[in-house]
Simulated assay, not measured.
Amino acid sequence: MTTGWRTIKTAVAGIDGLTEKAGRILGGFNLLLVVSVFLVVLLRYWFNSGSIALQELAMYFHALIFLGASSYTLKQGGHVRVDVFYNRMNIRQKAWVNCLGTLFLLFPVCLFIGYMSFDYVSRSWAIMETSPDPGGLPLVYLLKTLILVFVVTMLLQGIAEFFRSILILAGKESPEDG
């Protein structure tokens, strides 16, 4: 195998490793989300009390899990496809679908989201935006930053998926390798 193909395989493995680590770490936040929602319900219905900060914390955990781990879901093949067709395809056909889908769907959508949200996030950082609710969390700018984290991680994993498909189409990698 030439140096170019090895470099691509190394880059794909590096991105995959980063995505795996992030996905596993973010998976731990599911427990924190469940606990925070449980506490919100407990406070509201058993103690007739509430906490805006705790409610917002649950929202922050949800956003972190959803936006942060989307690239992990992509790596695991968990995003939406028309599986009734995709599952019947051979490895090369799947590689073509993945390659073209990444180029013409994933990349443009991620770039559009990044472009449209950049000013939104920048303005939030400029004013160090806080919760509009009394007792809310003072970190809205960090919450909004997760949109750009989503874009970057999805683009990175998209690059890995694209090049994995190229490697398969070039006969340089079998699906079991990736």
Rank of each mutant, 00 (worst) to 15 (best):
residue 7 T to G: 12
residue 7 T to D: 05
residue 8 I to S: 09
residue 8 I to A: 13
residue 9 K to I: 09
residue 10 T to R: 10
residue 12 V to E: 06
residue 13 A to Y: 08
residue 13 A to Q: 05
residue 15 I to M: 11
residue 17 G to Y: 05
residue 18 L to Y: 09
residue 18 L to A: 14
residue 19 T to N: 04
residue 19 T to S: 13
residue 20 E to Y: 06
residue 21 K to P: 01
residue 26 L to M: 08
residue 28 G to I: 04
residue 29 F to C: 08
residue 31 L to V: 15
residue 31 L to K: 08
residue 32 L to N: 03
residue 32 L to S: 04
residue 35 V to E: 10
residue 35 V to R: 06
residue 37 V to Y: 03
residue 42 L to E: 08
residue 43 L to Q: 08
residue 43 L to P: 03
residue 43 L to W: 12
residue 44 R to Q: 14
residue 44 R to G: 07
residue 45 Y to E: 12
residue 45 Y to A: 04
residue 49 S to C: 03
residue 50 G to I: 08
residue 50 G to A: 14
residue 51 S to I: 12
residue 52 I to F: 00
residue 53 A to I: 04
residue 54 L to I: 12
residue 55 Q to G: 14
residue 55 Q to A: 15
residue 56 E to A: 08
residue 59 M to R: 04
residue 59 M to Q: 11
residue 62 H to Q: 12
residue 63 A to K: 02
residue 65 I to K: 01
residue 66 F to K: 03
residue 68 G to E: 04
residue 72 Y to H: 13
residue 73 T to L: 12
residue 74 L to K: 01
residue 74 L to H: 06
residue 75 K to I: 01
residue 76 Q to Y: 09
residue 80 V to K: 01
residue 80 V to Y: 08
residue 80 V to C: 01
residue 84 V to Y: 15
residue 84 V to D: 15
residue 85 F to Q: 05
residue 85 F to D: 07
residue 87 N to P: 05
residue 87 N to K: 13
residue 88 R to Q: 13
residue 89 M to Y: 13
residue 90 N to P: 03
residue 90 N to H: 13
residue 90 N to K: 00
residue 91 I to F: 12
residue 91 I to E: 13
residue 92 R to Y: 11
residue 93 Q to K: 07
residue 93 Q to L: 11
residue 96 W to C: 03
residue 97 V to D: 11
residue 99 C to Q: 05
residue 100 L to H: 01
residue 104 F to Q: 00
residue 106 L to R: 07
residue 107 F to P: 10
residue 107 F to I: 12
residue 108 P to A: 12
residue 109 V to W: 07
residue 110 C to I: 07
residue 110 C to R: 00
residue 111 L to A: 11
